[in-house]
Design a protein around this nucleic acid. Structure first.
Lengths: 255, 255
DNA sequence: CGAGTAGTTGACGATTGTCAAGATGGGTGG
DNA sequence: CCACCCATCTTGACAATCGTCAACTACTCG
């Protein structure tokens, strides 16, 4: 119509039915016909660019989002204006679940790179989940999973030292990439060192120093955003704190 | 029957309909008749004593619990055998939500004092929520609220110093007691200093020292488990980090 | 090509953990 | 009812980790 060889967005519209992420995402455990019903309420978006907001703190909550390609960070703004990063989100991950309670967003979400996102209007999803028990169950499970995630964060920030935190972070990314079919040992960090430090509760300088040290001892290979994990087993040990000089265990006493 | 003046447990059985916690709990936003239906699947328990387990990590998940009287701590056990406290739970709070995903408990729950608990079989609750849309919605909201709670923890452990952490902890308790009709400025801590330190990611000694210092400057009055908040406004400022010498802000840089 | 952002490295200090010793109180058994 | 004991809590001295400040380098993007 308008131009030559312009592929209309509609043409590349992907449906849940043939989306490679469906095993990680909401359609998991739904029958094919239910997936089609789910698909009918989902809207696919134009690509977002690095720095674009998916939504901002305080905005009314209308829909959940699923990252399709790329990555997203969620953060909340402190009283002093600085931000506190809540998480990094890879393809297949649902964002916005914390907004259901109050019907408005409690944090902001921003694309870390060129990113595709699906929108799921929550009121429609809720109605649909009322008709499809397995969808309801799946939603309960996804919400529950998110709650279970808190445990890991508490471990990370409550008792781990800086080395263990970064090791844990790298292992977590590695496993998430792996389950998405990417390399578990060779990947790019879409977030800055500032973001990593903020997320892990450490100063940027500390992140930088640990990257350097991990590289010196042959644990990893880093060049800017590009990371290679050279000794996954050892890195996992470090992440669990099982490595050499048994580290400080803040407030670790039990009873 | 068996004895003299023994009040049978059945006689003091309380129903959701006349439970003072219903405004904080699942019945919130349900019609009276739906509350009765909900009530029919809920089982009230014998009292638990200090140290009794509600459930343990790894056990199959069957029911959610609501604290009715007393208090409970949830914790998960680390590789090294020490425990990591995940939260303290007051009357009206739902426990076990993290177990829905995998159908088995990911943490343990233990009574901190003499405690009454209601059991809600989850499979029945799920079925009922499928019949009562407002119950389904309420469950989504409760799960979402728990997820939003993670934000506060991240703030607490990620950027706050020791003073701010303890101040935040006290303010949180204060507000939760207040919304339950208890004094916001005069209460008893059911958990040990060890537990507080563990929860806040600080050493017991640090907790002890801060309690002493807060008392010296007239912020609070502490005697063993008994705490009085003498300057709620100032304590809130401290909790938010808005107080005098602007504190360290670990990894606080934004971008 | 220039400017600004992101990242690195070093020196120093503050906060908080660790170790050790002592105080306090509650619970239990005689 | 008292005494002892053990767990909890407190306090002090010291050390370690990690944050802060500052300078410098290296990209990236107009």
């Amino acid at each position: 119509m308008t131009g030559r060889n312009v592929i209309p967005l509609e043409a590349i519209k992907i449906a849940c039915q043939n989306c490679s992420l469906s095993a990680l995402c909401l359609p998991m455990a739904l029958t094919p016909e239910d997936v089609i019903r789910l698909d009918s309420i989902i809207k696919r978006n134009r690509p977002l660019h690095r720095g674009d907001h998916l939504y901002s703190e305080g905005e009314p909550f209308e829909k959940l989002r699923v990252v399709t390609t790329g990555s997203v960070k969620t953060y909340s703004t402190c009283d002093d204006g600085s931000e506190r990063i809540l998480g990094f989100h890879l393809p297949g991950e649902l964002i916005g679940l914390d907004a259901i309670e109050s019907n408005h967003h409690r944090c902001s979400a921003k694309a870390l790179e060129t990113t595709l996102v699906c929108d799921i209007p929550f009121d429609q999803l809720e109605k649909l989940s009322h008709q499809i028990p397995s969808l309801q169950h799946q939603l309960y499970r996804l919400l529950s999973r998110e709650i279970g995630h808190e445990t890991e964060i508490l471990m990370l920030l409550g008792k781990k030292g800086a080395d263990e935190r970064l090791a844990t972070f790298l292992i977590s990314l590695s496993e998430r990439f792996k389950s998405r079919g990417f390399s578990a040992t060779d990947f790019f960090l879409s977030m800055s060192r500032y973001d990593i430090g903020n997320y892990l509760g450490l100063a940027v300088e500390t992140i930088s120093r640990i990257f350097t040290r991990f590289q010196e001892v042959g644990l990893i290979q880093v060049e800017r955003k590009h990371v290679q994990l050279l000794n996954l087993a050892l890195l996992k040990e470090m992440a669990d704190g099982n490595h050499h000089k048994s580290r400080s265990h803040r407030g670790c006493q039990s009873k």
